[in-house]
Design a protein around this nucleic acid. Structure first.
Lengths: 190, 190
DNA sequence: GTCTATAACCAGATAGAC
DNA sequence: GTCTATCTGGTTATAGAC
């Protein structure tokens, strides 16, 4: 598979997909080379520092995918309420029944490695901050103060990370659905 | 260490502590026996089904610890707003600088194993539902409808799970602080 | 007989040589 | 791109201590 991808991209794509499903420690390099079809020699050619370096590339790849997804949803929304509700509702469909199984974009990796790999922890931290910056911008545009915007961005990011975790654990889109339904009330007062 | 604990309890306590910090796959049985001082033979005496069985016991142990923590905070709070804000604020202190390093109670384990171990996934799912039941009860007592109470319970649980993840990743209590500060606004309208 | 201690097992890991 | 080295994973076997 991945015949059309260059070896390096095939490695990143496969790694990011498997890490989402089983976490960093749960995926072996053998799994990645088997699924990507890229030989082990090539892996160490493109990623001489090994698994950590491949994981960092996979995290940055996932970061970009998520950014594009968020921006697409946000482009069509006129206010933060619509934007977030639509986004979480879309997540609930993606993690619900039917469709390809998805994992946590990078949350599991962050939870596993925050004490063991400073490199990966920093990659996750920077990814989280980039996502939050997009959220904060949406609040700023709507007239919220800078301080409120960043706090709300953190809060909504936490909501999505936690919601995805609950969806995966219960194998159901319902937790994210419940969260999406609450969002109008959560933002009603401001 | 753990001289005063019985071997079985020492294993559960050590396992739950290490799993919180490094996840399920990231902790080897060798780490657990080394830190607990319990020999490998005893481990398989008390947990004949091995690592999965020990992990399930560790999850249930952590579940109980968290339940007691929640109930203690909730007992002193007259309304859900105070209850949740106090709880999240307490989390922010626990995950902030100083003090023992903490990990995600079971969130990382859930993220790692949802596709690989149905046994552990179900233990995590049941733990999450038990915690949410306590949250929902607090809302019910305050006069919220049954449906709103369960939805709000899911939402606040997601907030805590996501907030803890952000705290660990950034090695800071600030994300949880920001969330705690937003809670009055999130619940203001009802 | 319950529990402990240690040693051996083999599959799998990452890594790297050829 | 294959093939090997080295090490660690979880597991099991067996012998001894209480």
């Amino acid at each position: 598979m991945d015949k059309k991808l260059k070896p390096k991209d095939a490695l990143i794509e496969t790694a990011s997909r498997l890490f989402k499903l089983r976490g960093y420690c749960g995926v072996g390099l053998n799994d990645i080379i088997a699924e990507s079809g890229v030989p082990k020699g090539s892996l160490y050619h493109y990623f001489p520092e090994g698994k950590e370096q491949l994981a960092t590339a996979a995290i940055n790849y996932t970061k970009q995918l998520v950014i594009e997804d968020i921006q697409q949803v946000f482009a069509d929304a006129s206010n933060p309420l619509d934007a977030f509700q639509t986004y979480v509702y879309e997540l609930s469909k993606a993690f619900g029944e039917g469709g390809d199984p998805l994992g946590s974009p990078i949350g599991t990796i962050a939870g596993e490695t925050h004490t063991t790999s400073e490199t990966i922890r920093l990659a996750c931290d920077s990814t989280f901050k980039d996502w939050q910056a997009i959220y904060a911008e949406k609040f700023l545009e709507a007239g919220y103060s800078a301080q409120d915007s960043t706090s709300l961005a953190v809060t909504f990011h936490a909501l999505t990370e936690g919601g995805i975790l609950l969806a995966l654990t219960s194998k159901s889109g319902k937790p994210l659905e419940a969260i999406a339904n609450q969002i109008p009330f959560l933002l009603a007062q401001k």
